[in-house]
Design a binder for these strands. Sequence first.
DNA 1: TTGAAAGCGCTAACAA
DNA 2: TTGTTAGCGCTTTCAA
Lengths: 340, 340
Amino acid sequence: MAATITIKDVAKKAGVSLITVSRVINGRGYVGADTRARVQAAIDELQYVPNQMASSLRSQQTDTLALILPDITNSFWTTIARGVEDEAWSRGYGVFLCNTDDDPGKEARYIDILLRRRVEGIIIVPTPESVAQVERLQRRAIPFVVLHRKLEGIDADVVRSDSRGGAFELTRRLLDAGSRRIAYIGGPPTLLLSLDRLEGYKEALASAGVPVDPHLIKLGAYGQETGLRAAQELAAASPRPEALLIANSRLAIGALHALAEAGLRVPEDIAVAAFYDIAALDEYSPLMTTVRQPAYAIGQFGVRRLLERVAGKHLPVEDIVLPNQITVRQTQPRKLVAPT
Amino acid sequence: MAATITIKDVAKKAGVSLITVSRVINGRGYVGADTRARVQAAIDELQYVPNQMASSLRSQQTDTLALILPDITNSFWTTIARGVEDEAWSRGYGVFLCNTDDDPGKEARYIDILLRRRVEGIIIVPTPESVAQVERLQRRAIPFVVLHRKLEGIDADVVRSDSRGGAFELTRRLLDAGSRRIAYIGGPPTLLLSLDRLEGYKEALASAGVPVDPHLIKLGAYGQETGLRAAQELAAASPRPEALLIANSRLAIGALHALAEAGLRVPEDIAVAAFYDIAALDEYSPLMTTVRQPAYAIGQFGVRRLLERVAGKHLPVEDIVLPNQITVRQTQPRKLVAPT
DNA sequence: TTGAAAGCGCTAACAA
DNA sequence: TTGTTAGCGCTTTCAA
């Protein structure tokens, strides 16, 4: 590292004191117009770039946040990450991205490093095991915001999409289209998110006076396998359900495989409505009603909320629920493979 | 910010000097076993976390890198990003991620911020307009590594996949399978990457004694539209080519649309080999021979190389070319939509 | 094997 | 409107 140019060099060249240069750089405090110009000229001439480490050490502000999530390779998290990055950088904050792969050990190690780096706040997509880590943050008074998944027993801001409302709305669409026997394929009842969606489904049925039939509710681990098996069973049932409500993208993919194999056309033979976030597959999927979660906005709002906390605002803890986007594609599915 | 615990507090509690605590933390320098134990006990008891700003300021090491790329929302870049993140964190470096959307203005602004933050090195997926920015880095002696795209006139390490070899190999496979009239759909000849692939194609033909037919070469902007139109033209040509070599994922998708619409079965009516990086679409696409670029490894190797530069090793500038993975899927394509 | 002194580059707090 | 002084929390350098 060659002899770096410091604020001192600039001050000398401009014939002012250090602090004056500092004021010009940070644009605060009174500085005369001509002084400012002289300083700026010196900065330009020397190609001076302030050292943020020094500034941070003194001011106790690192202008840095962190985003902890399972895996940016998953397109839903990617979009959230992009929302976080854009919003944070645009407000002058850098972001450290941490992929935990839902591994609590990794998560803990990342948080250690983040504490050393004195990040001013953390945005986290937690697993149920994150509770201990999050409590550590609380003890140290590091502001944080939880995205997408609520954490039981933790009093913290959450930004998420409206799972209950999304499921309710999808179900209502199916009902409006005339379906009555509407089956539900959803995630494990141990997750709050799954429960919310199941609830939305039940409420919509109730509001239409349709009784809930437990035989039509299939729950299991998130994953294509669950969706596949559930849809196979439902396709073979008699009477066959008129419609399927599917609570997750991977479940939906599995279910669509099963329906296609069974030769059931969507929507002619069976209507489908689903939470479906995999944009790449969208136009190759059948005509169904889908909920797209506002991933980008979840990231954006997460940062906004976090920065309010960082600024020390005394706000009540809030559960920020963003509306979903419901889409009904009009165009027929595209094909990558010629029909046989 | 409550009164933070500093190294001083630890030293006092352990009855040693600051520097001894520092040695224990960083695990270097001689420290007696019992002293070390006492210090560690104090650290644990006080829950002391070192302040990296202070450490960085003094040591001139920020342990921080940056990754500049177009957009993590694109799955190819995402995977590269993941490779970079994993490798960097595992070596004790944090990474700032910068999405430029291929916008030179954004790129310049990011680099300003990164210079302030004194990142020790930068990994960049450049656009042709990045040359000016990259020269700025050179002037300041900030180590950097270029990923995926070579930069004309810039003498720097590059990590990329073997475009020429990939195209050569794909073409050879088509030739081996008996095709002679092999058409080529590729990107604009202004990009080095495109030229490499075109060259691989031509070389393979030459090596098999097949003459290059300019009518069978369709070049255009990367994008589905180009692929669609090119494939339409080729499908309508007579004699129709027996095989298609497609040099990019988006071109391939467009081309597959066209073939499906024309009712041409792949590979029965026409064989296809392609650079195809969109994993989500993989199993829904026809049976074709594909090149998958080693995105994760590109990220990994980029970091490794960069850290060698950061360490000050005097290595010759290198063009690191990683082999592609060639795949021939055996199972029939899956269907999301029932056949009609 | 341990420690004392100096200072990294900047800004907070106060003074003029 | 500008400047002086002190010090953020750590590591480097030198000494013991």
